[in-house]
């Protein structure tokens, strides 16, 4: 069993063996070229032409012939490894995971990840539409601006006037007097109602 002793495939050893077998020195190259075809030859997957070429080589190369025999022996040994059976729960677990898979969503579903978000988004759109539909603020004409400017001094001093103590000490007009004054105004200006 020289092949087993060498441990690794060695074209040099193959050439030596070929020489011993009375072959030409070309066997070295030939063994190297055969390397990739040995497996195909062992498992019967070589094409007809390649198979014939291999058999021609094997008939003159003792090392390659030995290697083929040993590879066949390895192949038989690999058959001894027993198969295992799937556990009883295997299918159940696969189906449970299939059931847990999220259902495929439509393209539109991307826009509605949740009802709350959808509601908030629609309210925002409505609010924007409402703001957009409001009439623009009326612009002031020159006389109105002038009036505001005149009153500006009073407005600026509003804080002082509102807390001005002497004003609070003035007597408050009676409610009955107000009504009488109003009636009086109505009787003196009848044309205002016309």
């Amino acid at each position: 069993m020289t092949g087993l002793k060498t441990g690794h495939y060695n074209p040099g050893a193959a050439g030596k063996a070929a020489e011993e077998a009375g072959s030409e020195g070309k066997e070295d190259m030939s063994c190297g070229r055969m390397e990739k075809k040995i497996m195909g030859y062992v498992d019967g997957r070589l094409k007809e032409g390649e198979r014939l070429e291999m058999e021609k080589h094997l008939s003159t190369c003792a090392v390659c012939q030995l290697r083929v025999n040993e590879f066949r022996a390895v192949d038989v040994l690999l058959d001894e490894v027993p198969m295992i059976e799937p556990s009883a729960a295997f299918d159940v677990r696969v189906w449970a995971r299939v059931a847990a898979e999220p259902a495929k969503q439509s393209w539109w579903a991307w826009f509605a990840p949740s009802p709350r978000v959808a509601f908030a988004a629609s309210m925002l759109v409505l609010a924007m539409m409402w703001l957009g539909s409001r009439p623009p603020e009326p612009s002031l004409n020159a006389s109105e601006v002038e009036t505001i400017n005149q009153n500006m001094q009073v407005l600026e001093n509003y804080d002082v006037i509102s807390d001005f103590a002497p004003l609070s000490e003035l007597p408050q007009p009676a409610q009955g007097d107000d009504i009488d004054d109003a009636n009086q105004n109505q009787s003196t200006n009848p044309n205002q109602q016309m």
């Binding site: 069993m1 087993l4 441990g7 022996a73 040994l77 690999l78």
Partner: peptide, 19 residues
Amino acid sequence: FRAYETLRVELAPLVAQQG
């Protein structure tokens, strides 16, 4: 090829029996 080479060496006693 390299795999079978390794297996051939590792399983040498069994390969010898097989032969």
